[in-house]
Every structure is written in C-alpha cells, then in structure tokens.
Simulated scan of single mutants.
Amino acid sequence: MSAQPADASAPTDAPTLVLVRGDITDQDADVLVNAANSSLLGGGGVDGAIHRRGGKAILDDCRRLRAGHYGRGLPTGQAVATTAGDLAARWVVHTVGPVYSRTEDRSALLASCYRESLRVADELGAGSVAFPAISTGVYGWPMDDGARIAVETVRAARPASVREVRFVLFDAPAYAAFEVALG
C-alpha cells in the first residue's frame, strides 16, 4: 500500500487530500465511505467488501435504516451513517452513486455522493474520511471523469471537523487518474 500527500496547496480550512493505493477496508480512519447500492444490504465490489469485513453489526444497522426512514432504499446521491462493526473505522457512511449514462448528465448526483458523505462525516465529528472511487466500478463511470468530480467536490467542501480526506484506490490506473485530477 502506498500513500501520497496530495494537496499541500489547499487553503488551510480545507481538508488535506491524500492518495492511497490499497484496500479501503484496511484503512484506519474515522469514516469509511461505502459505495453502496440503494438496498443498503450489501452487494459486490466495495459494498460487499465493507459488509464482509465489517461484519453483522453493519448489516443490522442497515436493516434498521430500511425498517425506518429508508424503507424504499437510500436514494442516489444521499448518504447515511452506520456503525463500522469490525472495521478499524468508527463509522461507515453509505452513499449510492449513479450509474453512468452516455445520454444523461448525472455528474451532479456523483458530486452529491461526495458532498453528502462529507456532510454526514462532519455531523459525526469525524476528523478523517476514506473514500473509494464512487461509481467507477460496475456502475461504469469513466475513471478520469470520476476522479475529476471527486477531487473538485471535496476541494470545494469546507467541513468543520474533517481534516483529512483519503482517496483509497484499488489499482494503479485508478491511482494514476486521481494523481492527474489532483494536478
């Protein structure tokens, strides 16, 4: 796993942005962001990995959310927190990314995933947040554009408590795309 401080030129009220190549479930951060599906009940990719590694407590919290306010699932672009279960994090913030479309601009929904996740993390008092590259896997978002949207959105956010944002990228091409987006 490699890490690179990536945003030394950011204004002092903005979180420091860091790139990490590795597995998001290995991160010791206050919040891990889960690229969830709307059911909140686990799935493939990052979602499945977080649920497997975090254990039953995450699924139990997600079931409580589904039994309450999110009976129809979590809408795309929104975010909600649960326990982190057996993960090193304190919380998991679940967000549902949009499926990429060549005919409809859904970039505002993707940006909302990052913005809303930071808002929820800030409400929790989190100091550090680890993000995957939301929607760039099975949802088909082009990695370079997904990286650009992620970086621009996080740079524009001004959470009060979040001091560090890590983009945790699973492979070399994703890491390279985020390096370019950071400039």
Rank of each mutant, 00 (worst) to 15 (best):
V129S: 02
Y139P: 00
Y100V: 15
G137C: 03
F178D: 05
R166P: 06
P159A: 12
R21L: 13
D30E: 09
V162I: 14
S112G: 08
A84E: 04
G183L: 14
T76A: 05
L32T: 11
A172K: 12
S38I: 04
A36Y: 12
H94C: 13
Y175C: 14
V180E: 10
A8L: 15
A8S: 12
T95M: 12
L65I: 12
P173G: 07
S2E: 00
G85L: 09
I50V: 12
T16K: 11
R64P: 00
G77F: 07
L182W: 09
A176H: 06
S39G: 11
G137S: 02
L59R: 03
V168P: 03
Q4A: 11
A111Q: 13
G43S: 09
I50A: 06
A121L: 06
R115E: 13
V96G: 00
A156L: 10
G183Q: 11
S2N: 02
A156C: 07
Q4M: 13
R119V: 07
D30K: 12
T103I: 13
V120Q: 03
R72C: 04
Q78Y: 08
S112Y: 11
S112D: 07
P159L: 14
V20E: 01
R106C: 08
G44F: 07
A121T: 03
T82Y: 03
V165P: 00
P173Q: 08
R106N: 11
F167E: 04
A10W: 15
V46T: 04
N37E: 05
L124A: 07
T82P: 01
R90P: 08
S9W: 09
L124P: 04
L169R: 06
L74S: 00
P98E: 13
R52A: 00
A160D: 04
S9T: 05
Y100I: 15
Y70I: 01
V20R: 08
R158D: 06
S135H: 08
I134P: 00
T82S: 05
A35P: 05
V96K: 05
A172E: 14
A174G: 02
